[in-house]
Design a protein around this nucleic acid. Structure first.
Lengths: 367, 367
DNA sequence: CTGAAAGCGCTTACAG
DNA sequence: CTGAAAGCGCTTACAG
């Protein structure tokens, strides 16, 4: 393959270079190469000549110039807290992966802004919304409604797993309540009745939904809800460990629950550790279930039965919805077509859930 | 707080808006607000007037216009393969976090390009290097030297954990050999002598370095290297599991090694599983050590003794080095000041390494 | 100490 | 079907 004579040129070729090379105007080159939205058409021969010239000159559009002319950066911002330990990292990665997929497909760049925490850094959001991005994706924001008011009106926003409805922001979420419901029905179907719920922080939307699913599943199977079996913890491994340790200490000598349904994989992993500390074996002595299907769920021993949200697909949708809003806004139509989009979830059965010991003794083994 | 009368303006304020408001030229505003590099100075009063006007108008620089004028995007690209499972994800996240830290500090944007695999997508690299980024970071590239030749000369590159020296690319790595050496010395210090090495793929730079450290440590303690104790595997959990299963099968009835030093945490986790399958208990029957300190290293039972690379600091350095190169190149100085930068590593002792059983019987228990 | 002018590379009306 | 002109918002020499 012969080396182009232009390959060593210090300056990248511009549209007028291409135009000159092809014997046409820069504008004609713009139409052919960058699909500039003019009504005029170029004849096939001219078109070919321009394409050939561009290839020869290795023409590549200068995105800064295009952005300046279009008042459009073709860049979406991603605002996220990054320091939340494993759980958040695994969650972020899946969503981010989905975002990148869609961004690549739709020819958008991405810019990541990291926050220390949502509460403290809400004031930084407006500063991210000028010049360099066309719209902003909020990853699991926990904003007060007051803080949400400072979001600039010119910039379209979308969120995933927002803790409260944010004005003028489309929120993407999954049916967490249904996931919890399905999981607890799954436990019940295995023969479990006394099911402990290691719950999340009170007031957090996700935690409340999961607790509601737990209660609804018990009710649907006519298992009375025993509030002493609902223990407050949190989403982290640490909070799960503390909560489970505390429960085991306070209830020493009492009958063990058949199963533990944890608000998150993190809490489930902490619970696994606390159970291991007192010599209990999962799932033969007690079953444990998590929620989220983080990467860590597959690295525990035994692997964790959990609920999967289609985070990657949700990440894809974030970009699609945001771009739609950007285009709408540029066209002067700034209305919100939808407030939230809910994705279905899947149960992921793994080794951490088995039959309860009592049932095991009664039920005959499968042939 | 009274709302600014400009807050609802459809168009963002420009430098000439600010200039008009302050009664000066756009250029004066540029000097004060964006630190334009002109030799002239502005009087303190004018300066204050400009600053006040900018605040009133909520002026924010248009980065596209600046980029066009400066021929500089203030954006660094990050090229990475993303689909490598847990190990790569955890690795990427740490490095990425470090990159974002430094990018934020140095006022650079970041753009992530994902590749399916390095071999197939090497041809896409030049296309990433035009217009939108000033330089490119390669995350753990595995390029042939031939492929590296197609890297455009105008764009500065830096790499982390490159598999081969790439022409005109600064590579950031860590002292993996020393890490392996330290780990094996640690095992020896605990009393282990027969130490199995679950090794990585032959020819991979990292794998070879770790193996070299293993051998050097044995030699330094006058433990003869037994090549039958070095088994080829890979970095993944699966390859570790297969390798350890195979070894146990082939050596049934023979004395167990005292300890296993695995090329990676993934391989170590696979080894843990294979050992558990045959009823061996870690660390009382046999010790296991990994390498990398991935997130998974903390979720195994027992937690994994491993070696940590300072990935976040390395990510920081990637940006610093790249920016330095970009600035140098713009100043006409395109020479490489260094070929590679080596970071030290740390031993992370956890529960998967204990004293060998034989020693345990002889040595008195600690009081 | 400050300003008017030119130019970065693109796109979009507007003419022919 | 094609082109000349103006403008996006910034910065950098160059004058005063």
């Amino acid at each position: 393959m012969p080396r182009s004579k232009q390959a060593k040129s210090a300056r990248a070729a511009t549209l007028s270079d291409v135009g000159r090379e092809a014997g046409v105007s820069a504008m004609a080159a713009s139409v052919v190469l960058n699909g500039a939205s003019t009504s005029s058409r170029i004849s096939p021969e001219t078109r070919d000549r321009i394409l050939a010239a561009a290839a020869r000159l290795q023409y590549r559009v200068n995105v800064a110039a295009r952005a300046l002319a279009n008042r459009r950066m073709n860049t979406v911002g991603i605002a996220t807290v990054f320091e939340g330990g494993e759980l958040l990292n695994a969650y972020f990665l899946e969503v981010f992966n989905g975002i990148l997929e869609a961004a690549t497909r739709l020819e958008q760049n991405t810019t990541v802004f990291t926050l220390h925490d949502w509460h403290r850094d809400a004031a930084r959001l407006p500063g991210m919304c000028d010049g360099r991005i066309d719209g902003l994706i909020l990853i699991a924001p926990t904003l007060t409604r007051a803080a949400a008011k400072v979001l600039p009106v010119h910039t379209p926003f979308v969120a995933i797993h927002a803790n409260v409805p944010l004005p003028n922001v489309v929120n993407i979420e999954s049916d967490e309540e249904q996931g919890a419901y399905d999981m607890v029905r799954h436990l019940i179907a295995q023969g479990h009745r006394r099911i402990l719920h290691v719950a999340g922080v009170k007031g957090m939307v996700g935690a409340e939904r999961r607790k509601r699913g737990y209660k609804r599943a018990l009710a649907s199977a006519h298992v009375p809800v025993d509030n002493s079996l609902i223990i407050p913890a949190g989403f982290t491994e640490d909070s799960g460990r503390q909560a489970m340790r505390g429960w085991l200490r306070e209830h020493a000598g009492e009958p063990l629950p058949h199963a533990v349904f944890c608000v998150s994989d993190g809490a489930a992993i902490g619970s696994l550790e606390a159970l291991a500390e007192v010599g209990l074996h999962v799932p033969t002595d007690i079953s444990v279930a998590g929620f989220d299907d983080t990467l860590a769920a597959r690295t525990t021993v035994p692997q964790l039965t959990t609920v999967r949200q289609p985070l990657r697909a949700m990440g894809n949708r974030l970009v699609e919805v945001l771009l739609d809003r950007i285009q709408r806004q540029n066209a002067g139509d700034s209305g919100l077509t939808e407030k939230s989009i809910v994705f279905p979830v899947d149960l992921v059965p793994r080794a951490s859930v088995g039959a309860p010991p009592a049932v095991r003794r009664i039920v005959p083994a499968p042939r």
